[in-house]
Design a protein around this nucleic acid. Structure first.
Lengths: 137, 137
DNA sequence: CTTAATGCAAACCGTTTGCATAGAT
DNA sequence: ATCTATGCAAACGGTTTGCATTAAG
């Protein structure tokens, strides 16, 4: 039984074709941030069928189950990535669209101090740096 | 001549009814972050007419002219605010939607160091803390 | 066998656009 | 008078949804 199958069971989700396909594909693309359409296209190219609507449904379920994170960045399309790693933030290249991840304890800590100072109870945060990646400038 | 009128001229924009209305309304709401529809509704309520399409066009022009900043946050609707103040980041209440602004030099400085370390050329950044505001928890 | 998941196509929602008309300089 | 801005309604693009069908447990 594939890793995807047991992950689905652990998450309390029924093991179905589309769910396994999407999860497998996300695991094979751990270093990338994918849109629903990216995934749908990739599955079609590898001969597997899953409707776009189902890809969206599956991704939304995965997000609720905590398997996946959804990012919106600027622009209209959401991108998804597996959620099983540590928290990190993103640098998005405005030219090629590539996404670089980073972690920084100074910032992580600092934002909790800021929130506390405003009597604000943090549940999540987004930190995105926009600019040109190494390859694009 | 109102402040809005001279601001428009300075920005190289023709002084028209809808542009003055939108800019005046933004100035009267400096402490808030407004969606295109918020503005359109407000104008209608105060008896002024401007089509929603025009409000969008005007806001987009203002953004290009640097008069206004557009934020997307999470979710699909953009919000706008006047751009004539210092840079700041945002805390968004996930319950009531209120937006609190803050500035922090430690974070500002730190993110440039991080970018430099990855050979990334920063043009902009977004830092949003999500959670519950003082009033909501 | 029962209930939940899928595919399809249509609906949705914020936003943009083409085109004819009104308005600014 | 000229050329741009506006209003309207239709188009758009990503995402969601209703409903009949299919598959998982």
């Amino acid at each position: 039984m594939s890793g995807a199958q047991s992950e689905l069971k652990n998450a309390g989700l029924k093991v179905t074709g589309p769910r396994v396909l999407v999860l497998d594909y996300l695991e094979a693309s751990r270093d990338r941030h994918l849109s629903a359409e990216d995934i749908w296209t990739a599955l079609k190219e590898q001969g597997e069928e899953a409707s776009l609507a189902t890809v969206y449904r599956v991704l939304t379920q995965f997000e609720s189950a905590g398997l996946v994170h959804r990012h919106t960045f600027e622009g209209n399309t959401s991108v998804f990535e597996l959620a099983d790693e540590d928290h990190h933030d993103h640098m998005v290249c405005t030219k090629c669209g590539s996404v670089t991840e980073y972690v920084d304890d100074v910032i992580e800590k600092r934002q909790h101090e800021i929130a506390a100072a405003h009597n604000f109870q943090v549940s999540d945060h987004v930190h995105v740096i926009y600019g040109l990646c190494k390859a694009c400038h």
